[in-house]
Structure formats: structure tokens, C-alpha cells
Design a protein around this nucleic acid. Structure first.
Lengths: 100, 100
DNA sequence: TGAACATATTGATGATTATCGATATAATAT
DNA sequence: ATATTATATCGATAATCATCAATATGTTCA
């Protein structure tokens, strides 16, 4: 969870996720939406990948990135539950006793 | 939105929110749940307050903090929508055209 | 094999951040 | 008034982070 929150803390990385909602695409295709260098984008993608928010596969000389929808859904659920009732995963992650 | 994500990027701040789910409490009451100094906690609370995630009122010499449930609910909704369909607020925040 | 292309990695830099001890502020109690 | 208590603010420090230019890696194509 910590890696996910950290990954989402950067505006460019959130934008990458939004861009990827249009479907999987290569690094250079993602890049045209930004005004950052390829090196910076590559770094952001690496962080998103380590947070398991995106998946990557190779097609020829390109890397095709796509959203990891499962993780995003789980994250969304955790957040919703946090807003509502304390959720186990979330609570445990923080090293707290669960209320129940 | 950016401030909220930044605020949530820190584990201690997320834990503060979780602690505050048990109800409003003073700074020193919050503090016993952590192994950080009062100065550090005060800084975290200030960041949460600026992100509008917590509210603060004064009672005698104490500051009583509590969750801002409205903001949390809105945030949860934005996340859910992000996982699902692109949500206006979120999209606009990133300076992207909305698909619709 | 070698050139061209796509992306990752490296190393450096400036900016931001979490943290602390010390001090300031502000309320209450003696 | 003064001491005590609660919290915020200040100044410093070490760690993390976003970013870049340059280079390396790995793939395809001629």
C-alpha cells in the first residue's frame, strides 16, 4: 500500500495512469502527452511498475504499458473502505490493532 | 487533489487519519500512538489540515483534531471513479481533456 | 555485421521532505 | 504575576525525489 500511495503522490504519474485508461501503449506514445524527457518518463514508469499499478510487455523494440486494473480496483476498494469502515488490509498495513 | 495525494503519501499521516477514526482527539492523545516527537506530529497535522483532510478546533489549551469526513468521502469517490470511468474533477485536475 | 530505433540505466543536481531540539505562543492554574 | 501545560513554529540536517544529459542495452532491419 505504501508504494501505491507514494506512486500516486506525483501528478505526472497520476496523469500517466489516466493516459493509459485509453488503452495500452508504448513509452513514446505515452511521452507525447508530457513535457518531460524520456529518461524522466522511464523513471516514472518504473515507479508505477514497482507499485504494481502498471504492467509491461515487450513487442519488438517497444515496451507496451497498460494499467493493472486488478490492483487499481483493490486500491479503490481499500480507499472506499477507509472512508467507511476500517478495512483489514489497510489497518494491518499501518501496524495498528484492528478494532474488531 | 494534489495536496490530498501528497498528504496521504506518508505512512504516519495515514495512520493519523486511522487513529482519528476513533473520534476527535487532542494532539497529545494522538501522539501516544506514535514514536515521533511532538514537533513532527504537529507538522503532519498541519499538512493534513492544509489538505483539508482534518479539521481543528480549540478547547481550552488543547487543539482538538477530527476527520473531515466530507473531503474523505469526495476523495473516495474520485478514486472509485478513477478506477472506473474518468471523473471530471480528477481529469481536470491533471490538465487533460475530458474524453466526453 | 552494422546502423537505426526504443527504452532503460547512470550519475549529477536542485528541490522537497521528515525529522529533531529548541524556542515561541497562548491558555489555564496557582 | 508566574508557573505549568499544550501546541505551533523555527532552524538545521539528512534523506528522498524529480529531473536532466549522456550512455548503455537490446531489438530490428538493411
Amino acid at each position: 500500500m505504501d508504494k501505491i500511495f507514494k506512486a500516486l503522490a506525483d501528478k505526472n504519474r497520476r496523469k500517466i495512469l489516466t493516459v493509459l485508461k485509453n488503452g495500452e501503449m508504448s513509452v513514446s506514445e505515452i511521452l507525447v502527452n508530457f513535457e518531460i524527457t524520456q529518461a524522466t518518463l522511464s523513471n516514472h514508469l518504473s515507479i508505477l511498475k514497482k507499485a504494481n499499478l502498471v504492467l509491461c510487455s515487450i513487442r519488438g523494440k517497444q515496451r507496451i504499458y497498460r494499467l493493472n486494473k486488478e490492483i487499481l480496483a483493490t486500491f479503490g476498494q481499500n480507499i472506499s473502505n477507509f472512508v467507511g469502515i476500517l478495512e483489514k488490509t489497510f489497518t494491518q498495513d499501518l501496524g495498528l490493532r484492528n478494532k474488531n
